[in-house]
Design a protein around this nucleic acid. Structure first.
Lengths: 340, 340
DNA sequence: GAATCTTACGCAAACGTTTGCGTGTGGAAA
DNA sequence: TTTCCACACGCAAACGTTTGCGTAAGATTC
């Protein structure tokens, strides 16, 4: 196998200095036209590509954005990445994606690895474990080393930095309101445990909507799921023999599972029970009946997050101590699961 | 904001040389215990992390694997990445993921970018456009620069390198056989256009299975879809008034859409028509009825691909001119869509 | 023919590491 | 007092770039 060709090799072959080659390739007028052409022809022939690593070292920047997400096999997060890539590519940035797998340790490792020379800044949605542990030292350290961080979706209130979120509570309220508006009054919520920030917020939105309708909060109408793997059994038990007319699920999987469980329990969607989910993904779209959901506009989130980060990266620090929180609007995607 | 702390800064503060600091941090006995401790304490205090970029430059390797996939919002590809990450993390490699978005140009750009210093080798599934154009110069060039490439799933026969694939034809045959074994005889296939290698292979497997049963090939039983966005209309027209008892779809979306279309046309699955898909993803698992599929074992593919690549990376070239093709077994995941 | 100006190129430093080898200091042995 | 040996450390080169500045050779001017 050939080795990668460097300026030095070209210089040697052509019997000129390295700097001459470098300048020639940059079309510097300092170099004679003749030499320039010769060098360029040679470089092309040997398929010369400047070594990014050396450039990064020299420029003290990598032109790379590090994205760390809790799960890679997850429709919402991948759509966000799509948005990040769009902006990044436009602005000449590279995107490196790492998955923390919801593990605190892996999040720390990934972050430190990327921070030590591979990325200029981060776009991050924290792992479950991190939210639970409340240990944010890795993020603080990264920031204190001068690397900007943009948090999205699963954010951390205690950390002061740019953030991109949706108004989860408002979205949940919108969902619940939709159910109320079509006449449902016995609405249950299937949500996550409270330490997941978005789960808690969505629960709050649900409660707020009920309150506005003077519907009392009933504890037995709230299911908080810890172990996603076992959600079907939990949902089945929760729903059994409950006199309800609507389910609000805080994610796709819960919504789909609820629908399935209900039909097993002899109820039909949407006639007996209306269902609304959160996160507009593939499942909701293709399920039968197709599911009404609150769309989080993942791609928009990615776009905004990338813009915030690149702004920070490119403004010459100066007024850099200003942090913004962008709230992306959610919207209701009405489908068949709520059509009475 | 603070700047990143370097060896040089530590050296200056402690009034020793850079090399002393470097050696002290590596616990070299060349340095007195006293100095070592002082340096280490200082480094810890200032949260020193060696700069990977500098290391990469020095070592002429990055300990990073570049993964390029056609789509990031795609369950199968993300499971493959999961497998790659597993192995990579074990062996101390970093994983960089880039999406080509099925664009030839973006594939080339990503590859060149990563090749110029960011990755030691590649795991790649080529873009649709690349298969269509049959322009593989970027892959050839990368390899000729000494960087190993492992192709997976959507591979290219003309390129000589390590490959990880499933036996698509065999998988399709298995699927068709399953339909035949439960008594279906009028089986249609919904597949992709021929230039997608896996689509063609699966079509071949389907035909082979029919032949073994002495069932004549009927052109009107084969639907080749080019524009995925419009597949529902195409499938609907294709299925209308056709006397069939089974559908074999080469991916999840086609399978789900076919099911939907059939129910709209008044047929029930699996009673009137059995359905089997390819790629065992979220949709198949959660759909009602749940869909029987051929599992591609994406994670296994990722694991094998990563192992092949790391082997190449770490063997000292020598017998490096040996390329292997790993074929991952497919398996039938039987669910309700084929239960008579 | 000398002075000056161009032109075309090379030198060297810098980015942050690692590491083989050279070296100054001190103490111990003779 | 001299010689020798550890010990503890520093020097410098290398990885591949970029770029300001210095400088040779040739061309131009008077």
């Amino acid at each position: 196998m050939k080795q990668k060709v460097t300026l030095k090799q070209i210089a040697k072959e052509l019997d000129v200095s390295i700097s001459t080659v470098s300048k020639a390739l940059k079309d510097s007028t300092e170099i004679s036209l003749d030499t320039r052409q010769k060098v360029k022809a040679f470089a092309k022939l040997y398929n010369y590509k400047p070594n990014n690593i050396a450039l990064s070292l020299k420029n003290r920047k990598t032109k790379t954005i590090g994205v760390i997400i809790p799960e890679i096999v997850h429709h919402f997060f991948t759509t966000v990445i799509g948005g990040v890539e769009k902006v990044a590519n436009e602005k000449g940035y590279n995107v490196i994606i790492c998955s923390s797998n919801n593990s605190f340790d892996k999040e720390v490792i990934n972050m430190e690895m990327l921070a030590s020379g591979s990325a200029d800044g981060f776009i991050l949605s924290v792992a479950k474990e991190t939210q639970l542990k409340k240990d944010y030292h890795h993020i603080q350290e990264t920031m204190s080393q001068g690397m900007p961080v943009v948090l999205f979706d699963r954010i951390i209130d205690e950390i002061v930095c740019d953030k991109v979120i949706i108004d989860d509570a408002k979205g949940a309220q919108m969902a619940t309101n939709h159910l109320l508006s079509i006449g449902c009054r016995n609405i249950v919520i299937i949500t996550t445990v409270d330490y997941i920030s978005v789960g808690k917020l969505r629960t709050n939105g649900y409660l707020r909507a009920l309150r506005a309708y003077d519907i009392p909060e009933r504890e037995e109408f709230i299911l908080k799921i810890e172990d996603v793997g076992n959600c079907e059994a939990e949902i089945s038990e929760f729903l059994l023999n409950k006199d309800i007319d609507a389910v609000f699920a805080v994610n796709e999987l819960f919504a789909v599972t609820a629908t399935k469980v209900l039909s097993e329990q002899g109820k039909t969607v949407p006639n007996d029970v209306a269902i609304i989910g959160f996160t507009d993904g593939i499942l909701s779209k293709h399920f039968i009946p197709s599911l009404t959901t609150i769309s989080q506009h993942g791609e928009d989130m990615g776009i905004r997050a990338a813009k915030l980060l690149i702004d920070k990266l490119e403004c010459d620090d100066a007024g850099a101590e200003e942090y913004r929180t962008v709230i992306i609007d959610t919207s209701l995607v009405e489908r068949k699961s709520t059509k009475k």
